[in-house]
């Protein structure tokens, strides 16, 4: 997973297929922040406070759709997500290791 990190961005975009970027600093709601993709420096305005290391949507995601980071599926949305929103356990869930779903099905 080789990657080059450009200087001067607020968030990190790992792969051209990704829906999210990762905050490289504490970001406040309403800030317009930058990240770099193949086309150059991009901007998105945040809808929530974003802690360091947390994810920000850079594309809209429908509820139930896969969410990608590193170019791979990291889970699925449990609510509609718009660009600029904090993406975390409140709006995406894991697909794997879900013993709780099996337990519900057998009830």
């Amino acid at each position: 997973m080789a990657h080059v990190i450009g200087t001067g961005a607020d968030a990190l975009y790992m792969n051209e297929r990704d829906h999210v970027v990762t905050a490289l600093r504490e970001i406040r709601s309403g800030e317009t922040i930058s990240y770099r993709n193949a086309a150059g420096l991009q901007e998105v305005t945040t809808q929530n406070d974003i802690p360091f290391g947390h994810k920000i949507a850079v594309a809209a995601i429908e509820a139930g759709d896969d969410v990608r980071k590193y170019g791979e599926v990291i889970g699925r949305a449990v609510a509609p997500i718009v660009a600029g929103q904090h993406v975390h356990v409140h709006n995406i869930e894991g697909i794997r290791g879900r013993g709780d779903l099996g337990a519900k099905e057998t009830n």
């Binding site: 994810k55 889970g75 975390h88 356990v89 995406i92 894991g94 794997r96 290791g97 013993g99 709780d100």
Partner: peptide, 21 residues
Amino acid sequence: ADMRGGNPSPGNIAGGLSTIE
């Protein structure tokens, strides 16, 4: 059980990791 909460752990989640994937 959902493995989330055990792995990723509460600390992983606080650090921004949302799912085991």
